[in-house]
Amino acid sequence: METLEYHELVQRYYGSRLEIHGNLKTSASCMSPSTPIPQSTFDALRLVHPSVCKKYSGCGLVVPEKLQGCKVLDLGSGSGRDCFILSKLVGQSGHVIGIDMTAELILASRKYVQYHQQKYGYEKPNTIFVQGYIEKLNETGIQSGSLDVLVSNCAMCLCPDKKPVLREAFRVLKEGGELYLSDIYSSKAVPEHLKQDPVLWGEGLSGALYWRDLISLVHEVGFSTPYLLTASHIMVHNSELQKKASGITHTSATYRLFKLPKNRKQSDAVVAYKGTVPDHPDLLKFDMYHCFETDIEVTVDAEMAAVLQHSRFSSDFSIQSSDKPAPSPKCAPQVNPLVYFLWAIQKPSCICIFLYVLHYMKRKKEILVSNSYHCN
């Protein structure tokens, strides 16, 4: 199929066929978050109109920290649920744009803009919805370097060519901006004949990116290393789809990618988290490997140092060039974060991988982390 045919397929699949998210045939849209939901996000979610939540079909919850005053773009906004959560979190001074190719979803989302404006007590709306393609943001009029944060919730897997999506995301981000990317990834390259199946494509399975290709693609475009935050195995409920996709497993994973300055300083650093990110006074879990405990100095590599220094988190850390040894920030000591992704994609019997902080011991100044598996 050509790109236009894929777009038309997705528009039909999500515009008329999927009236509620329960019509989907995989567990991708009902994933429980692998980390506790911050209170502010939970409060915002409770305020979203029930009809909007009913039509939601993303991969869990995609809401990064510290969004007050930010300009945010949701790539593939669907029913608008994530946009309305973000609308609350960015505040009246922030701005949220939702873009989706499906006219029915854009029209449905626009119906609730005024509802949420009034619900949040805003003087004017801070959210707009635009019909368009996430690989063609230039056609929507979004300017280069104009946005602080991009989020994407199981949208890239519905695009036949992933590189233009990442390239456009990189273009519209400000220097230091973040792409908070949740999507579906496959255990191997998907054969072409499976990409022709409308249901497999609509479910995001046959359009899933082979997980190894993500790293090479983001580096080609110019992004930082992808920082893995969560990874959960996707269950296929439909027996016919299981048979078609036999031999390929799928994982829902969330990554953080940053647009860093080209001429940045390349050196390790000793950093200390100040405890100033809302909802995270004692500990900031940045990804599966980096957990920053308040007021504790740790050493990070040159790229992570650049992420902290040039992103919206710069005021939340003290950062000094590394000239003395310090412990590393560890969510999972002695374990490469890639291992968690491999566990999720190679263990079909596991519903989810939950990585979370069980206990915080202030006296010993150490973090105890448990990997909990819920398996059949």
Rank of each mutant, 00 (worst) to 15 (best):
I85C: 06
Y133P: 00
M101A: 15
L105D: 00
Q131D: 00
G98K: 04
V149T: 15
I97E: 08
G141M: 00
L150V: 15
N138T: 07
N138I: 02
E123L: 11
D74I: 07
K124W: 02
I106M: 05
Y122I: 06
K136A: 09
F84K: 02
I99P: 08
H116W: 08
G141A: 02
G91H: 12
I106C: 14
S87L: 00
Q92D: 11
G98L: 13
F129Y: 08
E123P: 01
Q92V: 02
G145N: 15
H95P: 01
K136N: 07
E135W: 08
E123M: 06
V130R: 08
L107Q: 15
V149E: 03
Q143S: 13
L147T: 15
T102D: 04
A103W: 02
L73Q: 09
L150T: 03
K119V: 13
L86W: 04
F129Q: 01
N138Q: 10
E104Y: 03
T140F: 00
F129I: 03
L147K: 14
E139Y: 07
S146N: 02
G94D: 04
G98I: 12
V151L: 07
G78M: 09
K111T: 14
G121V: 01
L75N: 08
S146Y: 01
L137C: 03
I106H: 11
S146F: 03
K111Y: 11
C70H: 12
V90P: 10
I142T: 14
V130Q: 09
L73M: 11
G121F: 00
K71S: 13
I134Q: 06
G78K: 10
D74W: 09
F84P: 06
D148W: 13
Q117K: 14
I134Y: 08
S144T: 15
L150S: 08
F129P: 03
Q143D: 07
G98E: 12
G91T: 12
L147G: 03
G145K: 03
S144M: 01
E123D: 12
E135Y: 10
A103V: 03
G145H: 14
Q131L: 02
Y133G: 04
D74M: 06
K111N: 14
Y112T: 01
G132A: 05
Y115K: 04
G121R: 00
R81T: 07
K88Q: 11
G80C: 07
V90Y: 06
L137R: 11
P125A: 05
E139N: 12
I142D: 10
V151A: 05
G91P: 12
I128V: 10
